[in-house]
């Protein structure tokens, strides 16, 4: 059983940065189909900045809540576009909901819920609009349903739910963001924002699951 401490939060951000870097081309290709094709590059730039911030925060000994608040601020000031403020605000709100040196499954679930609420408030999107919310909302639901489980189990369920939500965006018609300009032509394409959200939840699960070598 492992709670979310700052070291775990750092592992999450490292895993997220690695996942974004590994999938940059895929994210940009999804975005090119229904947007302008820079989602991968923008997030890569943001998470490169996060990697620097995060190491420093750990060196400074901050707790996981303030850690996520600072990381969110770094995303807001480095990503640009809509993704920066949206992901940054979600992380900042999640971080503000955490207190103490370590958070258990229920506390992390509540923090993720706070992040989702802030994301929906800021972006005005709901489930079904073909946005990151379509992966984020089911992930938070699955995570909180596993509140009595250990953190890694809850995160694994959240990752699976995020990926299912991500795939379910393909037949949707976009109602928010640049893809909405395409009207019916946005149908048939997986949403890049939901895809990057699923990558981040998968990164959380992987960072909490001991690798076979450990």
């Amino acid at each position: 059983m492992r709670d979310l401490d700052t070291a775990a939060a750092l592992s999450w951000m490292r895993a997220a940065a690695a996942a974004i870097a590994a999938h940059e081309a895929e994210l940009s290709a999804l975005d090119a189909a229904i947007g302008d094709g820079d989602h991968g590059a923008n997030l890569r730039r943001g998470f490169s900045a996060v990697a620097v911030t995060a190491e420093q925060l750990v060196a400074d000994g901050v707790q996981p809540g303030p850690f996520l608040v600072e990381v969110g601020g770094t995303l807001i000031s480095s990503v640009g576009g809509a993704a920066g403020p949206l992901y940054g605000t979600a992380l900042r709100s999640a971080g503000k909901a955490l207190s103490g040196p370590a958070a258990d499954t229920a506390a992390v679930g509540a923090a993720l819920r706070a992040g989702l609420d802030a994301l929906c408030r800021l972006g005005g999107a709901q489930v079904g609009d073909k946005t990151m919310v379509d992966a984020f909302a089911p992930a938070v639901g699955a995570f909180q349903s596993a509140a009595d489980q250990d953190l890694a189990t809850a995160a694994l369920r959240a990752a699976a739910a995020a990926e299912e939500g991500m795939r379910a965006t393909t037949p949707l018609r976009a109602r928010k963001g640049r893809a909405s300009y395409l009207g019916e032509r946005s149908i048939g394409h997986q949403d890049p924002g939901a895809t990057s959200t699923a990558l981040m939840f998968r990164a959380l699960a992987e960072s909490l699951t001991p690798s076979p070598a450990e």
Partner: peptide, 12 residues
């Protein structure tokens, strides 16, 4: 001036 086709960030 933001990145190409991306809004500049709030701090700027």
């Amino acid at each position: 001036a933001g990145e190409i086709f991306s809004s500049p960030t709030p701090d700027r």
